[in-house]
């Protein structure tokens, strides 16, 4: 039994925007009967903006839900905005998909691109994207595989199969996928090294507070509580974290050590290396 979110179930049981648009401005078709899922997306465009979107889908629950979500997401967007949508955005919109089902969200993104290309008069080749077919069983190209790896930070061949289906059949293409994966990961890592750990890695204040709270609630408090102690987050000011000790901790002579070596070390490790933990 798949663990589908309520949002997935809702979009599967009551899909939005089902059907055709007879006078569609763009139509995108991806997938095939042989693959087990296929999506045809219709869009209506006015002044560079998608004013209506409808779909027809053959596939499992998450394929239908992803299609329904996609149509809701693109309506009202300009074509350029719509092209920014990644498969991850579709999955996020649905509150997440089981990883074995991520290929459904990828299919959504590809159909959208195909529909927009169709509207813009760009010939969509037989293959939804340029590139060379790597996986014959599912007709997946190297371009599709590279893109899935980059956009979703995929780390294993198995992940690539979950997201693109490549390798899910006869498995003959697994060595090729592995090569592409190594190549793309290599490129991603050199890029990461060149880029200084600047803004993207830094957390906003709100993110930092949430992260601190999460670490305290999920890791630190349970272990203190096990010894009859407890701790409460009082305030976060920049990198200063104010807490108050409770229970047996409040009069424990070693509580300062607990704060420094336990709580602070852990928060520095997972949230921010500059964190200081102080008693409120």
């Amino acid at each position: 039994m798949w663990d589908y979110t309520d949002k997935v179930k809702e979009h599967f049981l009551n899909p939005k925007n089902v059907g055709k648009i007879e006078d569609a401005d763009g139509v995108g078709e991806v997938g095939s009967l042989a693959c087990g899922d296929a999506l045809r997306l219709f869009i209506k465009v006015e002044d560079g903006r998608i004013v209506d979107a409808r779909f027809q889908t053959f596939g499992c629950g998450s394929a239908i839900a992803s299609s329904s979500a996609l149509t809701e997401m693109v309506k009202g967007k300009t074509l350029d905005e719509a092209l920014q949508i990644t498969n991850k955005d579709i999955a996020d919109y649905l509150g997440g998909l089981p990883k074995e089902k991520m290929h459904c969200s990828v299919m959504g993104r590809e159909a959208l691109e195909a529909a927009i290309n169709n509207y813009r008069g760009i010939e969509t080749p037989d293959q939804p994207l340029e590139g060379e077919v790597v996986c014959e069983c599912f007709g997946v190209t190297d371009v599709q595989i590279r893109r899935a790896i980059e956009e979703n930070d995929l780390k294993s061949v198995e992940d690539v199969t979950h997201y693109t289906k490549a390798g899910g059949g006869c498995e003959r293409c697994l060595p090729d996928i592995e090569k592409i994966l190594a190549e793309v990961r290599g490129a991603m890592e050199t890029r990461a090294e060149r880029e200084p750990p600047g803004p993207p890695a830094r957390l906003t204040n709100l993110q930092r507070i949430q992260k601190v709270q999460q670490v305290i609630d999920e890791e630190i408090r349970p272990s203190l509580q096990a010894d009859g102690g407890d701790l409460e987050l009082v305030d976060v000011d920049g990198t200063k974290v104010y807490v108050s000790l409770r229970g047996t901790c409040s009069n424990c002579p070693s509580s300062q050590i607990t704060l420094k070596s336990g709580v602070e070390a852990r928060l520095r490790e997972v949230v921010d290396p500059d964190i200081q933990v102080l008693e409120a």
């Binding site: 899909p15 089902v18 078709e29 991806v30 997938g31 095939s32 009967l33 042989a34 693959c35 296929a38 999506l39 045809r40 027809q56 889908t57 053959f58 239908i64 037989d126």
Partner: peptide
């Protein structure tokens, strides 16, 4: 089937090209 893209046109589009 009413959601499926294949039914109306029979087997015409199987997505194979």
């Amino acid at each position: 089937r009413s959601i499926s893209p294949f039914t109306e046109e029979g087997d015409a589009w199987t997505g194979e090209g």
